[in-house]
Design a protein around this nucleic acid. Structure first.
Lengths: 209, 209
DNA sequence: GCCTCACTCATACGTTCGTTTGAATCATTC
DNA sequence: GAATGATTCAAACGAACGTATGAGTGAGGC
């Protein structure tokens, strides 16, 4: 059907261009041109550029959130006190695994996520839904249980750290590559490095308050 | 003198607005209006909007880089093999300390740094100079010495992690505040949390290659 | 055959953007 | 106090932006 086709091609083009040039750096004209669609198609299918971005964000973030949720369910079904390393893996792993095929080792999708979360425009707040908050809160409770000495504030800090490391690591594609080491590296290695890095960090002794 | 005054007021206004709304989200008109200057003053004093951003970036990043450099000098003057915790503090500490007065606990400046480093535009690559690269390479060598089992690739990954945690932590100001904990938290606490978090992460055993 | 509906199309509207221009103003020097 | 060089000013330029409009197209139902 031609309808879904155009819609999907606009979504694909927008996902690519938003990841590459940011929200404001991508024009509706560039999106429709890449999609082989008419300029007005964005307005027809999505209503506005901002709503198109929301649709793109939903499509990218949803499988990640779902995998995080399923991973936690599976973990807690086994024991209420899973090891920190497994909690970290269930939370951060999907950020490496749930990347669409054809992505450059997840780098493009990572960039898109950073774009979504770091855009200062207030309209960006509506690009993600309440499902992410719910999952985040559930992981917070699980971490709080297995890291009892940690104040809520410091635990929030550490969870933001998880997100920062996983999401921002592959952002440096924008930068000149580090000498002697091209980034992004192979996804599997980065995944393992991140889990090691984050498990140690989460397991650090709490600061006395 | 009126010259430096206008120039400085434009720099101040630009720093504020770039941090709050990003590079593309800030218009030259908004900057000059906030600075109480004429629209053409940006062109006269800086040449273009992009060069103004470069000047803003230089003014913010320079003291941080200088402090990082001085901290490493002081550390290495004492011993060639400093503890990981002190290397982390020398590298990440200035990102908390070298914040201009009047900033909201460094949150605004942190946001500006994230804006600079995450902007997808290719002109953003010229906003920072070679001094940052030099400092980064020196820290890389120091970390490599005290963490001998780590491959260069994994060490680069971890150093990017340091940056990610320190810079992105306070980014979440854009987001809705985490329930039960407003962010940004008091700067001193966040500084300590970050150093604990990152020292543990950097000290994690290396992955076999 | 024709109506209906979903969709695509070329085109235009109004706004905002970064930059430029040339005259006006100011401080300083001789 | 005239000349000079630096700075500020109001105004305008052309380009690019997001969005809206109304005609056009084609398949499916009656």
């Amino acid at each position: 059907m031609a309808t879904t086709d155009t819609r999907t091609q606009i979504l694909d083009a927008a996902e690519h261009l938003f990841a590459e040039h940011g929200y404001r750096g991508t024009s509706v004209r560039a999106i429709t041109q890449r999609a082989g669609a008419n300029l007005a198609a964005v307005g027809y299918h999505f209503g506005s550029k901002s709503e198109l971005m929301a649709a793109v964000a939903r499509r990218v973030v949803e499988p990640i959130t779902a995998a995080q949720c399923a991973g936690l369910d599976k973990l807690l079904a086994r024991t209420p006190d899973p090891p920190v390393s497994e909690l970290v893996e269930a939370f951060a792993g999907p950020l490496f695994d749930e990347m669409p095929a054809g992505d450059e080792g997840g780098a493009r999708t990572s960039r898109l996520i950073v774009t979504i979360l770091s855009d200062p425009a207030e309209e960006a707040r509506s690009w993600t839904g309440p499902a992410e908050d719910s999952v985040r809160d559930r992981y917070f409770a699980a971490f709080a249980r297995v890291l009892p000495g940690l104040s809520p504030e410091e635990l929030w800090f550490r969870m933001r750290g998880i997100f920062a490391v996983t999401a921002v690591d592959r952002l440096q594609v924008h930068q000149q590559p580090s000498p002697g080491c091209e980034s992004p590296v192979a996804g599997d290695a980065a995944r393992q490095w991140a889990l090691t890095f984050l498990t140690a960090a989460m397991s650090a002794p709490p600061n006395e308050t």
